[in-house]
Amino acid sequence: MKKSIALIVASTLFLQNCKDDCYTVPEPTVFEFVNSSGENLIQNGVLTSSNIVVQQDNGNGNFAGINVEVRDDKKILLKNVGLFDGTRNYNVYLTSDPIRTFNFKISSNQLTGDCDGYEINELTIENIPSSADNGYYKIVVD
């Protein structure tokens, strides 16, 4: 009897942990900042990570900072965006001279089924020329 109870408890814990091991993160959100000639502005030194400020608009004048990581390919990775169900708005400030700003919004949803996680359905960039390019967004800053 004790072995049966132990087996049931172990099976229950195993099944609960399976879902914990099955988590899908959204595709990474990556931006490349270029000039109109296509030159990467981080690679040529016009922008640095300290010149790029990204904020999530939480409404009512409240904002939360988004961590930005410059990757080896001189594109930036926005950390922990898309981990929600719904739509969120973001503001980007490029604090080099002259200061430039643009907005983007992300619509994402929670996955259903056996795995937990989120997927980004749409990312829309506003107020600046941009294009989706093979897993990242190219943003033209002039």
Score class of each variant (00 low, 15 high):
7 L>I: 09
7 L>E: 12
9 V>R: 00
11 S>K: 00
15 L>C: 11
15 L>M: 13
16 Q>E: 02
16 Q>G: 09
17 N>I: 02
17 N>P: 01
21 D>I: 01
21 D>C: 01
22 C>S: 10
23 Y>N: 05
24 T>Y: 05
25 V>G: 01
26 P>D: 09
33 F>E: 09
33 F>C: 04
33 F>A: 07
36 S>P: 10
37 S>C: 01
40 N>R: 01
40 N>M: 04
40 N>H: 10
41 L>K: 05
44 N>P: 01
45 G>C: 04
46 V>F: 14
46 V>S: 08
47 L>N: 08
48 T>Q: 09
49 S>E: 15
51 N>A: 02
52 I>T: 03
53 V>K: 11
53 V>D: 13
54 V>E: 05
54 V>A: 05
55 Q>V: 07
58 N>V: 02
59 G>L: 04
60 N>A: 12
61 G>S: 05
61 G>R: 00
62 N>C: 00
62 N>H: 11
63 F>D: 04
66 I>G: 01
67 N>F: 13
68 V>E: 03
69 E>T: 14
70 V>I: 14
70 V>P: 07
71 R>M: 15
71 R>V: 00
75 K>C: 14
77 L>V: 04
78 L>G: 06
79 K>N: 12
82 G>C: 09
85 D>T: 08
86 G>Y: 10
87 T>I: 13
88 R>I: 12
92 V>D: 12
93 Y>M: 11
96 S>N: 14
96 S>H: 12
97 D>G: 00
98 P>C: 10
99 I>N: 12
101 T>H: 08
106 I>Q: 10
107 S>Q: 14
108 S>E: 11
109 N>P: 00
114 D>K: 03
116 D>M: 02
116 D>V: 03
117 G>V: 09
118 Y>N: 07
120 I>E: 13
121 N>F: 03
121 N>P: 03
123 L>T: 15
124 T>R: 04
126 E>G: 02
128 I>R: 04
132 A>E: 15
132 A>F: 15
135 G>F: 11
136 Y>Q: 13
136 Y>N: 14
137 Y>I: 15
138 K>T: 15
139 I>A: 10
139 I>N: 06
140 V>C: 03
142 D>T: 11
